[in-house]
């Protein structure tokens, strides 16, 4: 018996011929090879099945709203709890978007900290320059967005001190960081000026080890771990939202504790 789904008129076979270039171009893009699967559907729509574009943009809109709420909750005068030095975990826990074997050590002698944006004095800083500035030590909890935490002891230059010394516009909205491992990051000015926001040079009285960001990394007691870039090479003060590595992949930007 003839199927009810079969068309009454069969199209001419030449139709196939005329569509061949299109089909080939689609094949080249791997769309047909992917087959009619959920995966292919996801590729066609440019995102994942459980995350249609409308859902994604709604979630990101709420995430931006949450950034505002978090900035409002942030008390610039509230200090994070500190701990005795005996509780410092030595060595600290390593994490990055790649495994430790991919770490590229930075040469401290030739390292320079570049300054950019709304800064009066853009002369680059050497490691010795930073060591000459007043230092602050803090033993604080490092909390990762993944859920783990440990107590770490960090010593370095308060970011506020550096920003003041180089004549940065402290009313600007953002402070952005560039790093040797291509891990851009940025924070709000209120957090940049918080007393527990350091450009860390030491961990537990020892010079920072290579996997933890030698010569200079950012350490903040009031932000999640992923907001603390290692191997910092440049700082920019700006009013334009700079984003960051994980933020571009969907993580919240403010990430305050």
């Amino acid at each position: 018996m003839r199927s009810r789904f079969r068309p009454d008129t069969i199209p001419d076979a030449s139709v196939l011929e005329s569509h061949k270039p299109l089909i080939r171009s689609l094949e080249r893009r791997g769309l047909i090879r992917g087959g009619v699967s959920l995966g292919a559907l996801a590729m066609l729509t440019g995102c994942d099945v459980d995350r249609p574009e409308s859902v994604e943009s709604a979630l990101l809109a709420i995430s931006r709203f949450n950034d505002t709420v978090q900035a409002w909750l942030f008390d610039p005068n509230r200090l994070a709890p500190t701990y005795p030095e005996s509780m410092i975990l030595r060595p600290p826990k390593f994490n990055a978007y790649y495994d430790v074997t991919e770490v590229k050590p930075v040469d401290g002698a030739s390292w320079r900290l570049e300054l950019a944006g709304l800064v009066a004095d853009k002369r680059p800083w050497t490691l010795a320059d930073l060591h000459a500035l007043p230092q602050r030590a803090m033993v604080i909890k490092h909390i990762c967005v993944e859920g783990w935490s440990y107590i770490g002891g960090w010593t370095g230059v308060p970011l506020r001190t550096l920003l003041e010394r180089c004549g940065a516009d402290l009313r600007a909205r953002y402070v952005a960081f560039k790093t040797a491992d291509d891990y851009p990051s940025s924070i709000d000015m209120a957090t940049a000026l918080h007393p527990q926001t350091l450009l860390a040079l030491k961990y537990g009285d020892e010079t920072l080890a290579d996997p933890f960001g030698y010569p200079v990394r950012l350490r903040m007691a009031t932000k999640l771990g992923y907001k603390n870039p290692k191997w910092v090479t440049a700082i920019e003060v700006t009013n334009t939202y700079p984003g960051g590595f994980w933020e571009a992949k969907g993580f919240p930007w403010f990430a305050g504790l």
């Binding site: 959920l38 995966g39 099945v49 459980d50 978007y97």
Partner: peptide, 14 residues
Amino acid sequence: LAGSAWAQSPTPGG
């Protein structure tokens, strides 16, 4: 449906 293979770590540790 949630669950494509996209993992957070391009290189898993260990």
